[in-house]
Structure formats: structure tokens, C-alpha cells
Computed example of a mutant assay.
Amino acid sequence: MRVLVIGGAGYIGSHAVRKLIEKGNDVVVLDSLYTGHRKVVDKKAKFYQGDIEDTNLVSKILRDENIDAVMHFAAY
């Protein structure tokens, strides 16, 4: 499964990303880095820096990355 994790550079989101990858999922992360940290995102995850309010970016990610599921951990 290909999962988009919004807020995947935060504390809880980064742990979810790690577990999803351990279970064999392909993971895409969208995070604005307002409170998250790029260095905690697993290197196996594809990373986009941007805001969830950017509907064009979110639409592009959903379309281009063939996302099957979305997990939302963004706090800001």
C-alpha cells in the first residue's frame, strides 16, 4: 500500500512512518516543517515540504504518487 503521512516529520508522525515502512508499505510524507524536523523522516520515505492548505500540492501528490491511504498527524 502507498500511504501519504501528513505531519510525518513530527514526533508521532515519524514513528508512524517508521512502522509503516517496517510493515512493507511505501510511504510519502508531506510536512511543512513548522514544528517537525526533516532529519527524523525515514530515508526510505519520499518527502514533500509543503502545507496541507496548498490544495494544488496535495492534489498533485495524491495523483502523482498513486496514494491508497492518508494518515493525518499535522498539528499546526
Rank of each mutant, 00 (worst) to 15 (best):
L4C: 11
L4A: 12
V5Q: 13
I6N: 02
I6F: 06
G8K: 14
G10F: 04
G10W: 10
I12H: 11
S14H: 11
H15K: 14
V17K: 13
V17C: 14
V17I: 08
R18M: 09
R18I: 09
K19A: 15
K19G: 12
I21P: 07
G24T: 14
G24C: 10
N25K: 13
N25E: 13
D26W: 10
V28S: 08
L30N: 01
D31S: 07
S32H: 00
S32P: 06
S32K: 00
L33C: 03
L33I: 02
Y34W: 04
Y34P: 00
Y34D: 07
Y34R: 05
H37F: 12
R38G: 04
D42H: 11
D42T: 00
D42Y: 01
K43C: 07
K43V: 04
A45R: 01
A45G: 03
K46L: 08
F47H: 00
Y48G: 00
Q49H: 01
G50H: 02
G50N: 00
G50V: 02
D51K: 01
D51S: 03
E53F: 12
E53G: 05
D54R: 00
D54H: 01
T55F: 08
N56K: 14
N56R: 07
L57H: 04
L57Y: 10
L57R: 01
S59Y: 08
S59T: 10
S59M: 03
K60F: 05
I61T: 02
I61A: 04
I61K: 08
L62H: 13
E65V: 14
E65P: 07
N66G: 13
I67T: 04
D68W: 11
V70R: 02
